[in-house]
Design a protein around this nucleic acid. Structure first.
Lengths: 183, 183
DNA sequence: CGCACCATGTAAGCAGTTACATGATTAC
DNA sequence: GTAATCATGTAACTGCTTACATGGTGCG
C-alpha cells in the first residue's frame, strides 16, 4: 500500500491480494472465518498465520480497500465482518492481472483466484509460468554437467535430480493446462 | 540463538545453519565470497540476500560460533575473513542431525550439506521426507474428490493436479535416493 | 469439570527483499 | 571515461512463526 494513490491504483502485497481475493470469492467474513476458509482451500498454496491475518485486515481498511462492521452478536468478543470495497475490487483486479516473471508463489495464488480474472489474464499467467519453468530447466541444464558426483557434489546431485524432475513435471502440466484453457 | 546455552548446544536457525555449513564446507571466507559461493551452489535451495548474510555473520560471532579476522589487504574496505569455531561445529552438527517433520526447506538445506553429517542422519532426513510426501499426497487425496470442477473449483483443480504430480515425482525420487543411500 | 470452538488481538523475533550509501581496483 | 567487480554495510518493510493474553459458549 506504500504506493501510487496518484495514478488511482493501489499496489497490493501477496497477503493483501490473497485476503481481498478471499473476500471477493466468499463475501463478508470475520477474520476467524477467513482463516478457516483459507485452511480448507488455499492452504497448500498460501497459509497465513492468525496474527498475520489480523494484521492485514486493518491495513486494508485504512487503505479503503475493505470495510468492516460489528457483526450481530451480543456475547463474546465483537465479531468484525469485513467486506471488500469498490476500491478494493479495482486494486484486486489490477493485482490479479499483473504478471510477475519468476514469482511462483504469486502464480499459485493468482491462478487459485482464476475465477476472478479474465481468460486472457489467466492465460498470460500460465504462459509466464511456462517460461519460468523453462528457465529453471536451463539453469539445471548448466549445473548438471559441472557436477562431479564426488565429494559434496555427490549430495548435491540428488537435489539436482529432484529439481529437474519437478521442473519437467511442471512443464508437462502447464502445457496441458494451456491446451485446455486456450483450446 | 535464542536458546539453551545451558545444555551446551546452541540451536540454529536455517540461515545460521546454512552459513555455518558453507563455512565448514569452504573454509575461511569473506561475506562477499560466501555470497558468491552460495549463488553458484545452493542457490536453487537457499539464496540469501546480501543484507541478510551481512546481518548473520556478526550474530554468529557474538554467539561464538564463528570468528573473523581482518584479511590481508591494505586498500578498499576491510576484508573480514570468517571461519567456523569448535563451538560452531558442534552447533552445526546438532542442527544437521535434527530431523524436523514437515520442514521441506530444511530438508533441502541439510541434505545439500549431506557430506557434513553421518550416513544415518542423512538417511533419517530422507525417510522423514518420504513420510512428509506421503502425508501431502493423503491431503490431496482427500481434497480431490470434493472438487466439483465447477465455478472456482475449476481453477483450483489445476493446482491440485500440479500438487499431486509434484508429490508423486518426489515420492519416486526419494525412494530411489533411499535405495542408493541404504543399498 | 474440562475441552473444543468461537473470536479477538499483541509482542517479539527471524526471514527475506529493495533501496541507499561508500569507495577502491581492474579491464575495456 | 565508464563499467564491472571487490567489499562492506544500514534502513525500512513485509512475511511468517511462536508464544502470550482474554473471555464466552456448548458438549459430554
Amino acid at each position: 500500500m506504500r504506493t501510487s494513490e496518484a495514478i488511482g491504483v493501489t499496489k497490493l502485497t501477496a497477503t493483501e491480494g490473497a485476503v481481498l481475493g478471499l473476500l471477493a470469492m466468499e463475501g463478508e467474513q470475520t477474520g476467524y472465518d477467513l482463516l478457516k476458509v483459507a485452511r480448507r482451500s488455499v492452504a497448500h498454496v498460501w497459509a497465513p498465520a492468525k496474527s498475520q491475518l489480523y494484521a492485514v485486515l486493518p491495513r486494508l481498511e485504512r487503505a479503503g480497500l475493505a470495510r468492516s462492521r460489528s457483526g450481530g452478536r451480543d456475547r463474546g468478543p465483537n465479531r468484525h465482518l469485513h467486506r471488500i470495497t469498490k476500491r478494493g475490487e479495482r486494486a484486486l483486479e489490477s493485482w490479479l492481472e499483473t504478471v510477475e516473471p519468476g514469482d511462483r508463489e504469486g502464480f499459485y495464488l493468482k491462478t487459485f483466484l482464476g475465477g476472478l480474472m479474465s481468460q486472457e489474464a489467466l492465460v498470460a499467467h500460465y504462459r509466464q509460468f511456462r517460461v519460468d519453468t523453462l528457465e529453471q530447466l536451463a539453469v539445471y541444464g548448466e549445473l548438471e554437467p559441472t557436477n562431479s558426483r564426488r565429494g559434496h557434489d555427490y549430495y548435491h546431485y540428488f537435489l539436482l535430480r529432484l529439481g529437474i524432475e519437478q521442473a519437467e513435471v511442471a512443464l508437462a502440466w502447464v502445457d496441458e493446462a494451456l491446451a485446455e484453457l486456450e483450446g
